[in-house]
Amino acid sequence: MNYTPDFSVVWANWPVLLRGLVVTIEIWLPSIAMGLAGGFLIAQARLSRRRWLSGGSLVYVELFRDTPVLIQLIWFYYAFPILVGVQLSPFAAALLGLTLNTSAYASEIFRGGIKSIHRGQMEGALAIGMSRAQAMRRVILPQVVKRMLPAFTNRTIEVAKMSSLASVISVHELMYQGRLLSSTYYRPFEILTAVAFIYLVLIYPGTFLAGRLEKHLARSS
């Protein structure tokens, strides 16, 4: 090994990487927020007694979990606009793909959480005259949310990692900027290593938090 790394190229292009990081966050946080909301609705559909709802949502969930997320992004960028006859920017396609993907995974977390609550809780709420929606909001969810917290934190970490795939459909996020810089300056070692560390700093707090939450919940139950 006689290669001498020169990280000055990273410092010189720090604003570019930072701009990429901002776009990463702009994909990441909305996808996770909308994905959680979508996941909640899909979980309701999965638990519905109407066959077409529960069956349809099962197919949705399996489609998104049993294909690579990169294929999903590419599909939403290259295939979907042709089918519906609308132009989608790379950013919009990435947001759409990641949100729908997150919805599928989040729905399974919700469903597992809701199913883990004893049936007696729902029956008890219905027996005092609550509607199903009231029972869900007042009785079931408060018990479930705490239990689901580690899984949601893990999902948030996964979405942060997945957001880097948006670079493949040329969204100008962190990974994209990293690739561009490394081919421009021909300093791939310095730049890609720096990109890896930026992701590490972005994601590690979440992993740490998820671990602490899991330990905490294991102790309190």
Partner: peptide, 9 residues
């Protein structure tokens, strides 16, 4: 704690 695509590149 780092995305897979970074490892590939």
């Amino acid at each position: 704690n780092t995305p897979p695509i970074v490892h590939f590149f």
